[in-house]
């Protein structure tokens, strides 16, 4: 390995090591949460709402839960990790190393990305054991999962860099992301909503992400898959460009 490869691998390893050391909180808790959602919505609601758009209700819900696990964990990991290191001052060790802004950004990004993928992957495995979950469009599903994970990892990095206290991270997660995810149609179809809520849902970017993942699994989407993929790619690229600029300028990282 070249020195640059060693450097990048170590920066990334540090991020993965952090969440693996607190597995109960970073992997166990999200899995339990998802399992509880499946139980409540599958067993309780599922007995009343048999089908949505011809798909068994629990099967309709699970792709959204997988997307939610991926998004929240990618985001929370990076936002917390960066803010914690800023508080401790430990981030100075990475910042005073020869690592480039791009290397630092990608290493922080992939930490949360890995955690998101692990939780989403485990959710998929558990869900597959409980219900018959199809994977209809793997060529849409895989890029969609990667894009969603990368987008929320980037958002976590941005929030962690900007944050000055844990309240700042909690605010974004509790008052922005969670409502957008819940109102983005994880548990229901937007077509069931009365106006103006059905139309308003179309202004929620997470609605399109949920539909992409749902299409990948069950082959059903309420919106254009191609347009959603394109918009998600553009949004992820734009967020990455913003973060790279902030890292290059040392915004809130270097004095």
């Amino acid at each position: 390995m070249s020195p640059a490869q060693i450097r990048f691998a170590t920066l990334w390893r540090r991020e993965v090591n952090r969440f693996m050391k607190i597995k109960k909180q970073t992997l166990g808790a999200p899995l339990l949460e998802t399992f509880l959602y499946i139980s409540v919505f599958g067993a309780a609601l599922g007995s009343r709402i048999k089908e949505l758009h011809g798909i068994e209700y629990i099967v309709f819900v699970i792709p959204g839960l997988i997307m939610m696990a991926l998004a929240i964990n990618s985001f929370a990991n990076n936002a917390s990790s960066i803010l914690q290191q800023k508080f401790q001052g430990a981030i100075q060790d990475q910042l005073s190393s020869p690592a480039s802004p791009l290397e630092l950004l990608l290493a922080f990004t992939f930490g949360g990305f890995m955690r998101g993928l692990i939780v989403a992957g485990l959710t998929f495995i558990v869900a597959s054991l409980l219900v018959d979950l199809p994977v209809d469009h793997v060529l849409v599903l895989i890029p969609s999962l990667f894009l969603v994970g990368f987008f929320f990892s980037q958002l976590g990095v941005l929030t962690g860099v900007r944050a000055e206290q844990f309240d700042d991270v909690a605010f974004v997660q509790t008052f922005v992301l969670t409502p957008l995810i819940f109102l983005g149609g994880v548990f229901y179809s937007a077509t069931l909503l009365p106006e103006p809520f059905e139309t308003l849902t179309h202004f929620n970017p997470i609605y399109y992400m949920i539909n992409l993942i749902r299409y990948g699994f069950v082959g059903f989407s309420e919106v254009s898959v191609a347009l959603s993929l394109l918009a998600l790619t553009a949004a992820t690229a734009a967020l990455f460009a913003v973060n790279l600029r902030l890292f290059s300028k040392g915004y809130k990282l270097r004095a």
Partner: peptide, 28 residues
């Protein structure tokens, strides 16, 4: 750099602290 503040990473052990630092500097 040995800074004035004790800016150690709480998640790391003593050995990891040294190993990671050297990794950040590209040491095999």
């Amino acid at each position: 750099l040995a800074p004035q503040e004790l800016n150690l990473d709480w998640f790391l052990t003593v050995e990891e602290t040294l190993d990671y630092h050297a990794g950040y500097f590209g040491m095999p």
